[in-house]
């Protein structure tokens, strides 16, 4: 707990330096959302009441939430930092600390994201208020959304760490990351709600972790699911967390073994 507090303080100092950048990024991130309002208005203009099970209002809200979630859950920086640490050898310093590498890294990550969320919260709410005509509000779903969001948070972190640790074996990782990023954008539902996809394809996507990092929490908020399906979705998320958690631990041990075997 004390380390978490220190991590929080450290990340707060770091945040204050980049604050203006963060807010700028956030505001520019809102522009595409405004474009979606026009684009989907034209699409719904064909007279359809619901597309992919979503009403127009829900559709806009979908993108707003996707935007918030993907900003908060984005783990790319952590992955890049980790791979730089591995390649530059700074990871040695972490190996010699009496606190586990991953547990320290996770605390720092969590602190960073909490600070981000706290800072972005008010501008985000203001933005929602400004476009409240297009926002679908359902307090009942919020609780399940939060649970699912937390699981997605852990899931996304683990995927990021796994990719970072892969640097131990694969030297160049940024190309791979960009590629994966583009694939993920589609598979996780950040471009289009996955309910618009044919059911076969949608089923196939259930076998990848991506949709559970973004689409599932947001879809849960929309409340079109039966409560039973909601439970199943959250359950699958939890299973993915366990599976990837195990993979991560094994990978970390292998990576460290390779370190102490080969050195640099």
């Amino acid at each position: 707990m004390r380390i978490q507090k220190a991590a929080f303080k450290l990340k707060l100092s770091e945040f204050t330096i980049y604050r203006s950048n963060v807010f700028l990024n956030f505001f520019f991130g809102c522009v595409p959302l405004l474009v979606y309002i026009f684009l989907w208005k034209a699409i719904y203009g064909n007279g359809l009441e619901r597309i992919g099970g979503y009403s127009y209002k829900q559709m806009i809200t979908y993108y707003v939430l996707i935007f918030l979630c993907s900003e908060v859950l984005d783990a790319r920086d952590n992955t890049v930092k980790m791979s730089e640490m591995i390649q530059g050898g700074q990871i040695h310093n972490y190996l010699l600390k009496p606190v586990g590498f991953l547990s320290l890294n996770y605390r720092l990550y969590q602190a960073e994201k909490m600070i981000y969320l706290l800072n972005i919260g008010i501008p985000f709410l203001a933005f929602c208020l400004a476009i409240h005509k297009f926002i679908y509000w359902k307090a009942y779903n919020l609780l399940f959304f939060v649970i699912s969001f937390c699981l997605a948070f852990v899931l996304k972190y683990m995927i990021g760490c796994i990719l970072g640790l892969i640097t131990t074996w694969v030297e160049e990782i940024t190309g791979l990351l960009d590629l994966l990023n583009n694939v993920e954008k589609f598979l996780s539902g950040s471009l289009i709600p996955l309910t618009l996809l044919p059911s076969g394809l949608n089923m196939a996507l259930s076998f990848f972790p991506f949709k559970y990092t973004l689409f599932v929490p947001v879809d849960i908020y929309m409340g079109n699911m039966k409560s039973q399906d909601m439970g199943i979705s959250i359950g699958i998320q939890a299973v993915w967390c366990i599976v990837l958690g195990l993979v991560l631990i094994i990978l970390k041990n292998e990576a460290f073994k390779k370190y102490s075997g080969y050195g640099s």
Binding site: A42, N46, L191
Partner: peptide
């Protein structure tokens, strides 16, 4: 290529929902 493909897929699936035209 993946980036542009996903943009195309967006419209592909939108038109597949049965709409005729977008403005």
């Amino acid at each position: 290529v993946m980036g542009y493909a996903s943009h195309i897929l967006f419209y592909y699936f939108v038109y597949d929902t049965g709409i005729e035209q977008i403005s």
